Simulated assay, not measured.
Amino acid sequence: MGDFCQIDKQEIVKRYKPIDKFTHKGLQGHALIIGGSYGKMGSVVLASKACIKAGAGLVTAYIPKCGYDIVQISVPEVMVVSDDYFEHITTINYEFQPQAIGIGIGMGQDPDTQQALHLFLKMNTTPLVIDADGLNILSQNIEWLSFLPKKTILTPHQKELERLIGKWSSEEEKLEMVKRLCLEYDLIFVLKGAPTIIVDNKSTYENTTGNQALATAGSGDVLTGIITSLVAQSYKPIDAAIIGVYLHGLTADIAYPEVSYQSFIASNIIETLGEAYLHIVT
């Protein structure tokens, strides 16, 4: 069966690393968020804003040209590199070395984008968090999993997971199928849902924070930004996943009494991250 652990405050405090008072942005990690396409630039705005809000020293967004003004104006703290093509990503070229990369959000599945992802995955050695269309493209090209750096974090929701591993008939079978893939390729899965479950080889972690307020558009994009940020800040991938899902859920628990389940949106997660951090350090 493997180990089972509930992610509670005690587990987070064990893993949380206080920030050195003499640190500077260059020591807090540079994260790269790759994604977006025409009509889906909001995903990159949310992920990159969450990434810097979660503590990364520097964040760069790599996007198609159509999103340049959108991201620059929406999140002035984030730098932007754009593809030459207007509507979607056709190549992935950047001239710096990030500490972590979050890829896939809002990027669509155009054949050019699939080709760009293929070439990127073959060349890349930087720690990765893969979400959304990144997962959908992988599910059509399952052999590409062998290109992923060890402990790459995949963050599928139920439908994305089904595309990756096929249908299951029970929760037990689902977890067994995920564990097999984890072991074969040495991956970490964040299975988004109620509750969110993290699988790392034979170990399973169940998150204890969060509520139905998180069932809203963009919530997963924000989670990708938070986890990528933590990896960039030199957390081990498993610790980044555990702290990330806990903080993400905690924002909904903190904000719910004032905002309600219905009116809580993905931007509220980002706005409440500071309070969530204070909750775990006090």
Rank of each mutant, 00 (worst) to 15 (best):
I12Y: 00
Y85E: 13
G274M: 09
L223N: 05
L145N: 09
D84V: 09
I19E: 05
T125C: 07
S263Q: 04
Q212F: 11
T272A: 03
L148A: 04
D186F: 07
Q158N: 11
F147G: 07
E143W: 08
K65D: 06
K122Y: 10
L117M: 10
M41A: 07
L183D: 12
L273F: 14
L187N: 07
G67L: 07
Q28D: 02
V129K: 01
F120H: 08
E11K: 01
T113N: 05
H30W: 08
V45N: 02
E95A: 04
I52F: 03
D133K: 09
Y68F: 14
K192F: 06
K14H: 12
Y38D: 10
N207I: 00
D239F: 01
L181S: 09
P76S: 09
L145R: 09
V281W: 06
I137V: 09
G220V: 08
I130A: 02
D133N: 14
E87L: 11
I73F: 06
A54E: 03
D200W: 08
K202F: 07
Y277E: 02
P76N: 13
L187H: 05
I101Q: 10
V190N: 02
L46H: 01
A54S: 15
V71I: 15
H157D: 12
I142G: 07
G106E: 11
S37K: 05
G29C: 10
K122E: 12
K17T: 12
I198V: 13
L214P: 02
I92H: 13
D8I: 08
Y62R: 03
D110A: 15
K174F: 03
Y62C: 06
K179R: 12
I238V: 15
C51Y: 03
G35N: 07
I12Q: 01
K14L: 08
L27E: 08
E162I: 13
L175F: 10
D200H: 02
T90K: 14
K179Q: 15
A232R: 10
K25G: 06
I103R: 01
A100F: 01
G36W: 07
H88M: 04
S219Q: 04
G108T: 11
A252S: 15
T152M: 11
L247W: 00
L121H: 05
E171R: 10
G225C: 04
G39V: 05
I280Q: 01
L128E: 06
L273C: 12
W144S: 08
T282D: 13
K65S: 11
E275F: 14
L191Q: 00
S263K: 12
L181M: 12
A56L: 04
T228W: 02
L181D: 09
V281N: 04
E11V: 03
L27M: 10
E171A: 11
D8E: 09
S234G: 09
K179S: 12
